[in-house]
Simulated scan of single mutants.
Amino acid sequence: MTTYAIDFRHSSINFSIKHMMISKIHGGFNSFSGHVQMEQIEDFKNAEIRFDLDVASINTRDHSRDHHLVSADFFDADRYPKITFIKTATEGDNKNFKLIGDLTIKDLTKEVVFDVIYSGHVKSPWNTDAYGFSCTTLLNRKNFNLTYNAALESGGVLIGEDVQINVELALNPL
């Protein structure tokens, strides 16, 4: 098995969610770690994959909103400092496939499915191998007990339920 390091300068974990029924808020996590190990980078069937996100590193470019998101109203980062994803299976071919795993937020674990596109392999100008992946999923935040909301005077709610997750991943073999 080969272990792959995450190229953090070229990888990101981001999300977007409907705000006030008319726009989307975008954010991400500035600090995360991962364990990726497999026999061949093109074959995820036997891969071991785990990601841990540091909840307190959430960044929506609004300090007061970020502070609220790590509070007990949302992620409760003091009690639940990590969000964890552990791969359980894959389906499909090696270029476009489904990455299935257990996502744990606030001690609630649910199965999620990421659509993954393998972008390919290149040699960097520094003679290192780099492999790229784009991963997306849509989840309902209420399934993870992220239920805070507020009614709008004009009707509707402040925060949507569906959260779009986008992961851009660059890996380098160790």
Rank of each mutant, 00 (worst) to 15 (best):
Y131P: 05
H67S: 15
N94G: 14
G34E: 13
I105M: 10
V70Y: 01
E111R: 15
F32G: 01
V167N: 04
A150Y: 05
I13C: 10
F97D: 09
Y80H: 15
L169A: 03
L146E: 03
I105F: 04
D115Y: 04
M1L: 12
S71W: 10
T88P: 01
T147F: 08
H19S: 10
V70L: 04
S124P: 01
T136Q: 06
D93Y: 09
L169V: 11
S124R: 12
I83A: 02
S23T: 13
K24V: 00
E48P: 08
F114T: 08
H19P: 13
R61S: 05
L53R: 01
S16D: 04
Y118V: 11
G156N: 06
R65M: 08
T60R: 07
N143F: 02
H19L: 15
K95T: 08
S31I: 00
W126P: 13
K45F: 01
R141M: 05
T90N: 09
K142G: 05
P125S: 06
R61L: 05
S31L: 00
I165L: 06
F44G: 02
R65T: 06
A89M: 10
C135W: 02
D107S: 15
K106I: 08
A150K: 12
V116F: 02
G28A: 01
S33D: 11
I49S: 03
F144V: 07
K95L: 12
A151C: 07
I17T: 03
T137D: 06
H35P: 00
E153H: 11
V122H: 11
G92H: 14
I100W: 02
L69A: 04
N96P: 02
E153S: 15
S154F: 14
H68R: 09
N96M: 02
N140Y: 03
D162F: 15
G101H: 04
Y118P: 04
S71G: 13
T128G: 04
H10T: 11
T3K: 12
T3H: 12
S124Q: 05
D62H: 14
K123Q: 12
S154Q: 14
D93E: 11
M21W: 00
I165G: 01
M20Q: 10
I100C: 05
L138P: 05
S71Y: 05
H68Q: 13
I25H: 01
T3P: 09
I41R: 09
S33Y: 04
I86V: 14
L138S: 06
I159V: 14
V113A: 10
A56T: 03
N127G: 11
L174R: 14
D107L: 13
E48C: 07
H26D: 03
G120D: 10
I22P: 02
F29Q: 07
S154E: 12
F144K: 03
F44Y: 05
L158M: 07
R65F: 05
T136Y: 09
T84N: 12
T60E: 05
N145W: 01
E91Y: 08
W126E: 14
